[in-house]
């Protein structure tokens, strides 16, 4: 009797798990779209910054989605972990925190932590050229050689050197390498 009960129970649990798989994967896919990110008003400013940045469109003129940089590209343990962690964090700030007063310095650190090199390298395969196919500067080439381990070595990831590539808070606008991005943002703000 006891054996029978447990086997029935096992079957029920198995069925529930099997039913949950499509539900979870569907909801994961739906909550990874740019549209879903934009359903929270605090993310609107990040979208408007992205639209003015050099990462607004890829080389096929397709708009770049949030998830292309902020979530691991391939499905796996890492993907689920990042999705759960960042999602739970976003929910907590949206419902319990103060979404109108975000600490963008802290956010930068968190965002950099979860942007993997593979996400960057999906588009930037050849590190001796930029996305338009132009050769990069001599210093840039040396830095990338060190990153690839050809000439020297560095522990830095892509985001260790390349920051403010898609979002630019006020306090980072003063850097010379952000001049163009800051100007575009300023022009956009004047028009509004």
């Amino acid at each position: 009797m006891a054996m029978k009960m447990s086997s029935v129970k096992m079957l029920v649990v198995l069925l529930i798990v099997l039913a949950l798989v499509p539900v979870i994967s569907m909801s994961m896919a739906r909550t990874s779209t740019t549209n879903y990110c934009m359903s929270c008003h605090e993310m609107k400013s990040h979208k408007s910054e992205l639209e003015k940045s050099s990462h607004a469109f890829d080389k096929d003129k397709k708009p770049i989605e949030c998830a292309q940089c902020h979530l691991p590209n391939s499905f796996g343990l890492k993907y689920v972990a990042v999705k759960v962690y960042l999602g739970a964090r976003d929910m907590m700030v949206h419902y319990l925190g103060d979404p109108n007063n975000l600490d963008r310095r802290k956010m930068q650190q968190i965002a950099r932590r979860f942007i993997l090199d593979d996400n960057c390298r999906a588009c930037h395969q050849d590190l001796s050229k930029n996305a338009k196919g132009e050769k990069i500067s001599e210093i840039g080439k040396l830095c990338h050689d060190a990153y690839l381990g050809i000439n020297g070595s560095t522990k830095s990831r892509c985001v260790g050197c390349h920051f403010n590539v898609a979002h630019l808070p006020d306090f980072d606008r003063r850097y010379f390498f952000n001049a163009k991005f800051a100007k575009r943002l300023q022009e956009g703000e004047k028009k509004r």
């Binding site: 343990l77 972990a81 990042v82 962690y85 650190q109 950099r112 932590r113 979860f114 985001v159 260790g160």
Partner: peptide, 10 residues
Amino acid sequence: TYINVAFPRV
């Protein structure tokens, strides 16, 4: 623990 090991703080 996994998050901290797989994604070290910047």
